[in-house]
């Protein structure tokens, strides 16, 4: 059975992780790790990366680090931004889109760099992207 997180990233962003990865939901946190780690048979503290949180505001919110690793796979609700906008995003500023984006709905969006890599996550409201870069990662 697919996890809530897997369902969400598929429906919202079109991201389907390959079988090489396992999605593990633990209370309010979600981790993604290499499937090989399940063969260890060790009591572990944590496997792989913190991929997101089950959030009271957003429901499910993918982490910045998840987007940096897997954001390039997004096919829906993703927007390519300029290098200058990447800097704005990481300073916590909002970004106003200069023209309407076709097929982008209000809610969480994955931002991609000009190279096509996942670069961040934001909340889209009527064409204004509110930075969701965590405060401790802002520059």
């Amino acid at each position: 059975m697919r996890s809530k997180f897997s369902e969400f990233i598929m429906s919202r962003f079109g991201i389907k992780l390959s079988d090489e990865f396992v999605v593990e939901e633990r209370t309010s946190k979600v981790y993604v790790y290499s499937a090989l780690l399940d063969r260890l048979g060790l009591k572990v503290v944590r496997k792989g990366i913190l991929a997101g949180k089950l959030d009271s505001i957003f429901g499910i919110k993918p982490s910045l680090d998840f987007v940096l690793v897997f954001g390039h796979l997004a096919t829906k609700n993703c927007i390519t931004i300029s290098d200058d906008d990447v800097v704005r995003l990481f300073s916590g500023e909002s970004i106003k889109l200069s023209q309407p984006q076709v097929g982008i709905s209000d809610g969480l969006v994955i931002l991609k760099s000009r190279r096509g890599m996942g670069i961040g996550i934001a909340y889209n409201k009527n064409g204004e992207l509110q930075s969701l870069i965590p405060k401790d990662r802002r520059v």
Binding site: F21, V32, Y33, S34, L36, L37, L40, L42, K43, V44, V45, R46, K47, G48, I49, D65, L68, V69
Partner: peptide, 8 residues
């Protein structure tokens, strides 16, 4: 962004 590390 490393997925192959388990912490013990």
């Amino acid at each position: 962004g490393i997925t192959c590390i388990a912490m013990t």
